[in-house]
Design a protein around this nucleic acid. Structure first.
Lengths: 133, 133
DNA sequence: GTATCTGCAAATCCTTTGCAAGTCA
DNA sequence: TGACTTGCAAAGGATTTGCAGATAC
């Protein structure tokens, strides 16, 4: 209902798929110089509660936000270069099913970040010894 | 090689399966009052580099350590009660395979924390509406 | 004896909070 | 008006770092 909120919502909606609080902040500040980070965090929290935005902890202190209406996806996070690769929701649906069956655990995979090494870094890894099997 | 390092290693090894830096710290301080947190962090980093210990980011700022020689497992983390359920490594092996095939991504699932809601909290959830599908 | 490790304190980083002032309907 | 929202600045928690002194081998 306030201009700053609108800009924050806009920033999240405009993001291709996910965006960090800091990025949102810089984007908003660019147009509206005296917004404050706390407003960004407060608004994001609100949007999350309203179910408009999903918050994902990618691990390593990286937290990103994503508009719900753009569909869900998962993230592969490269430990080497930090790249994040989006994964369609369907890829993990069987995992979700088996966790439910075997553990009665309702997994919220929308909040999932899978660590690993991406193609590019694997190729460049000829220089450094491979880390994990 | 130093007493403090030995105690830290011991604390990690004694943990059933995973333990946080803060827990390690308190455990060590109990026996050796003037160790410092920074020593704990420095030692854990060292142990990780040596490949003796695995560091897992469970999300939500929770980071735990686990001795490599005790076998790997994954974690289901309940958003409601915070419980962590251990998952055998085999459960996700097919996931690992398909990520490798489809995305050429080498997933390091040892560092995986899956968010969701556990059995207990689902049962108690009769009070509050279910969150995710 | 020398390189390494430690404790301490201060510094980060990211996020949250208290509060008084400002804004929306 | 009256509740809600903001900015600011300070507080937080977790982890890291610089540095001088202490320790291991």
């Amino acid at each position: 209902m306030t201009p700053q909120r609108l800009m924050i919502v806009e920033a999240v909606e405009n993001s291709t798929n996910h965006i960090g609080a800091d990025e949102i902040y810089s984007e908003v500040v660019a147009k509206y110089p005296n917004v404050n980070v706390s407003t960004v965090y407060r608004t994001l929290e609100l949007l999350e509660q309203l179910g408009l935005v999903t918050k994902t902890d990618l691990g390593g202190g990286r937290v990103v936000y994503h508009p719900v209406d753009k569909g869900h996806h998962h993230h592969l996070v490269c430990k080497e270069c930090g790249a994040t690769i989006d994964l369609d929701e369907s890829v993990l649906s069987s995992l979700k099913d088996s966790l439910l069956r075997q553990y009665q655990f309702v997994a919220d995979l929308r909040h999932l970040g899978i660590q690993g090494v991406c193609v590019n870094c694997r190729q460049h890894a000829s220089q450094k010894p491979a880390e994990s099997k």
